[in-house]
């Protein structure tokens, strides 16, 4: 048990060090990229060409292979940001601040992708681009949170203060997000908006489910790759003048 604890401690300290992360990520990056590409191609081709078309929606439903994975990673990234914020505020681990800075734009992009793909899906199926439905509204609020984090970060000159500020915001936002979601739900049931039921309680057939799972996995891998790249770029801007970084750059040339 103690050994395991020590191993975690060592890993934690390694994770906090820029040079270690920079070197390990350069090894991980090619493998992860290939995997992400493979799963993405397999998932999308499977979903678009080899899965059955929906009885009611026809082929339109196939946008699910973009929409659901995007929405899923959008939420997961925010969850990860909040955890990183907590780690930064409590233990002042600088990698956590860097993680928030690097991941926020990625999260915002996937949230936007989820919203746009949802709208494109909505137009032919329910005849409208947008419904003030609980799920759509809370995704829009999620996008606002991401934008607030990006805006707040960019307003600071001092990286330390910026990291601290976005950590606090990510934490408070994460505490507030479930409340927002719940209150949007109440608001939605109170208004009983339209005859359109956006997400029916439907069971998805396994022939559709498997390609969807592959796509979700592919999106998480893509986020992993993008995240590594963004974090490496951020490390490069922060540590440009440090000796270890110069050494790596010279060795690569």
């Amino acid at each position: 048990m103690n050994k395991l604890l020590d191993a975690i401690k060592v890993f934690y300290h390694k994770l906090g060090s820029y040079p270690w992360f920079y070197s390990i990520s350069s090894k991980l990056l090619p493998i992860a990229s290939i995997l992400a590409f493979l799963f993405f191609v397999i998932g999308i081709i499977w979903g678009i060409f080899y899965s059955p078309s929906d009885a009611i929606q026809g082929d339109i439903y196939r946008i699910i292979y973009m929409h659901v994975p995007a929405a899923s990673v959008a939420q997961s990234i925010y969850f990860a940001l909040a955890i990183a914020g907590f780690v930064y505020v409590v233990w002042k681990m600088k990698m956590a601040g860097l993680f928030i800075k690097a991941m926020a734009p990625i999260g915002a992009s996937f949230t936007l992708l989820a919203l746009v793909s949802g709208a494109i899906w909505g137009q032919p199926t329910w005849g409208t681009w947008w419904v003030w439905d609980a799920r759509l509204t809370s995704t829009l609020v999620l996008l606002l949170f991401y934008l607030a984090i990006i805006g707040l970060y960019s307003s600071f000159d001092n990286k330390k203060s910026a990291d601290q500020a976005v950590s606090i915001l990510a934490m408070v936002g994460a505490i507030n997000l479930p409340i927002i979601k719940k209150s949007v739900d109440w608001w939605n049931t109170l208004h009983q908006p339209s005859s359109i039921r956006v997400f029916e309680e439907s069971t998805i057939s396994s022939e559709m489910l498997f390609p969807l799972l592959v796509c979700i996995l592919a999106f998480y891998l893509i986020v992993f790759v993008f995240g590594l790249m963004a974090m490496r770029a951020e490390i490069a801007t922060r540590e440009m003048n440090k000796d270890w970084f110069k050494k790596i750059v010279i060795n690569n040339d």
Binding site: L144, I180, S183
Partner: peptide
């Protein structure tokens, strides 16, 4: 405002 408005959404609804 960009920080405050999404946070105060539940209050507005409730």
């Amino acid at each position: 405002s960009a920080i405050m408005l999404p946070l105060s959404l539940p209050v507005l609804i409730l």
